[in-house]
Simulated scan of single mutants.
Amino acid sequence: MRVRPHLGESTENYIRRLARANHLRPSALHAIACGPPNWVGKPRLERLAVLTSRPADHLNEALTDAVAPRRRITVTGQYQRLPRGTYLLYRAIQKDAEAGLSLRHLTERHGVSRHIVRAALTALLPPARQRPNRHRKTPVTASVRHLITPMIRQNVSSKDIWKTLMDDHGISISFSTLNAYVRNQRTGYRGPTPPTC
């Protein structure tokens, strides 16, 4: 069954919708989209195009993270310069689109036309400024630790944990990050301790 990607949707979310529409496990479809040798990682656009019967350039235009450098810099290496109000609106639209809102919902939520939403979703914006944090960043696995820990205790493999997160909980996490976390938990490694003053 063919599933149309939503403008501004993430690749992982699109793969989950496509898998469910075709009664497949998202992890299995994700593996096919990645291909050998590891069958995990970032799905390859050309493989996804074959699976969906859609041109790769259409997928690239719709999916926010189909190609890694997208939305980072322009051909000339410069970010788009926008007035502050426009920048904040575009950033909010992009954030909502990544959460899975459709084009119609984006226009309604932000009270703007489809033309403005499309402009926001294709804008090349600099990354949002982050406030400096003197403490270490929260690990990516922190929000899913309650799901991962019981599986580690049951000696489930990293790959099977990754599949369970994707298939049963709709959670996409980097396999290499997950694998490192599982390995560290099993060996008792806790990471470097911050220096004391």
Rank of each mutant, 00 (worst) to 15 (best):
M1C: 12
R2Y: 03
V3C: 13
H6L: 15
L7F: 14
G8T: 11
N13M: 04
R16S: 11
A21H: 12
R25C: 04
P26F: 05
H30R: 07
A33F: 09
N38F: 13
V40I: 09
V40F: 11
K42M: 09
P43Q: 11
P43N: 09
R47V: 01
R47Y: 06
L48E: 06
P55K: 13
H58I: 00
L63S: 10
V67A: 05
R70N: 10
R70G: 07
R70T: 07
T76W: 04
Q80W: 04
L82T: 07
L89C: 05
R91Y: 13
A92W: 04
D96R: 15
G100S: 07
S102L: 05
R104G: 07
H105Q: 15
R109K: 15
S113D: 13
S113W: 05
R114Y: 08
I116E: 11
L124T: 09
L125K: 06
P126K: 13
P126E: 12
P126D: 04
P132V: 14
H135M: 03
R136D: 05
S143R: 12
S143E: 07
V144T: 06
V156A: 10
S157G: 06
S158L: 03
D160G: 01
M166E: 00
D168G: 13
G170Q: 15
S172D: 09
S174C: 08
L178T: 02
L178H: 02
R183A: 09
N184Q: 13
Q185S: 12
T193Y: 01
T196H: 09
